[in-house]
């Protein structure tokens, strides 16, 4: 009996994936650590112990200017970076499996170009404080662009690739208008340009609050359907035979991922590379293509962007680097190493 049992456990070696909690846990711990670093470092150095005491409301915490720096500047900024990173990485992973394309990124359906156009319209026509209007304009622009892509493609239900193509067309169209506006109003070239490269300098509690609502809702939806997303690896008939309605699942997934992306873009501008690199990085480390590790992808994306933002703030201090530069600068080589080690996407 005992021998039989041992034989059967040997037989199922290498069969069937298991949820990799270890990686999820490591990423969560990493996010906490990186987050703590991010709120500690800067022109004013804050001590870990005092930060923790302040956050937990204990005696001996920070006071005065230090407290203001922590609560009103660094904390919302780190939180926003985490939210945006999680949103972009998760949407990227989801787009990649919905479109069965390892190169798909969250900006694919025109969300980025639409949001860019919205932001440019706001910047070029604004009088006074544009920054409070930017998120709203870019959110509307991004969502409109994606809806237009859906509307034009029409054949989404028959062929996901046609949605992809119309997304590209809508995206280029929006970019063309944006460039035109930019040239017409050359005085505002610089703010538009810096927005395009991505920045988290505008982070405040108001932005953190409303973007966290949209991003957490869409991430919740995506993580709850993440196991079923694996079924989309099969042909539509096969996934149907396993009890999935592939078109409905794609619709839900794309809608949630777009909401997360549009929110992220409107809160922070265009931050490239996170949506492609982080999912593949997690896949490379866990040796697993499935979407079961979507939570891990979200945590890794959050940690990655918090770290990148720390770099953006401190490397050329007191000047700031655009965070998109950091993500590409660090992300690209790291990605290439993983890619070379795995040899497959």
């Amino acid at each position: 009996m005992k021998g039989e049992k041992r034989e059967s456990s040997a037989r199922i070696q290498g069969i069937s994936p298991i949820w990799n909690w270890r990686t999820t846990f490591i990423c969560a711990a990493l996010l906490l650590l990186v987050g703590l670093l991010a709120i500690s470092f800067g022109p004013i150095h804050l001590r870990f112990g005092e930060i923790i005491k302040t956050l937990l409301g204990m005696d001996g915490g920070l006071s005065g200017q230090d407290r203001t720096v922590l609560i009103d500047l660094r904390l919302p900024r780190a939180l926003l970076a985490a939210l945006v990173g999680a949103a972009l990485a998760t949407s990227g992973a989801v787009y990649q499996s919905v479109f069965r394309n390892p190169l798909a990124d969250p900006y694919l359906l025109g969300a980025a170009s639409g949001a860019g156009l919205g932001a440019t319209i706001a910047i070029t026509n604004a009088h006074g404080d544009v920054y409070s209007l930017l998120p709203i304009f870019s959110f509307i622009g991004g969502t409109l662009a994606v809806l237009t892509s859906f509307f034009i493609s029409g054949k989404f239900f028959a062929e996901p690739q046609s949605l992809l193509l119309s997304g590209i067309a809508v995206g280029s169209f929006a970019t063309a208008i944006q460039t035109y506006l930019q040239q017409r109003h050359s005085s505002s070239l610089r703010p538009v340009y810096s927005w395009i490269l991505g920045e988290l300098t505008v982070a405040n509690w108001q932005i953190v609050t409303w973007s966290s609502i949209y991003i957490l809702i869409s991430l919740g939806v995506l993580i709850s359907i993440s196991k079923q997303l694996d079924g989309l690896m099969l042909s539509d008939e096969e996934s149907f035979s396993l009890g999935i309605n592939p078109n409905r699942l794609r619709m839900i997934a794309v809608a949630a991922a777009t909401l997360a992306t549009a929110t992220a873009v409107s809160a922070s501008g265009l931050i490239g590379f996170v949506g492609i690199v982080v999912p593949h990085l997690v896949r490379g480390i866990t040796h697993r293509v499935t979407n079961r590790n979507l939570l891990t992808v979200a945590l890794a994306g959050a940690a990655f962007l918090v770290l990148a933002d720390l770099g953006a703030r401190t490397l050329l201090s007191p000047a700031e680097l655009p965070i998109g530069v950091i993500t590409a600068f660090v992300g690209a080589p790291f990605f290439l190493v993983v890619l070379r080690r795995r040899r497959t996407l």
Binding site: G14, I15, S16, P17, W19, R100, P102, S226, K227, Q228, D230, G231, M233, L234, S235, E238, S241, L242, G243, R283, R288, V289, T290, R292, R342, T344, L345
Partner: peptide, 25 residues
């Protein structure tokens, strides 16, 4: 004409067939 997913092993692929019985994942 099957969809051939990239980067998935034979057993993971075959395991997808169990999802209706066991629940996804």
């Amino acid at each position: 004409q099957p969809q051939i997913p990239q980067g998935i092993s034979v057993s993971e692929y075959v395991a997808l067939g169990r999802s209706k019985r066991d629940g996804w994942g």
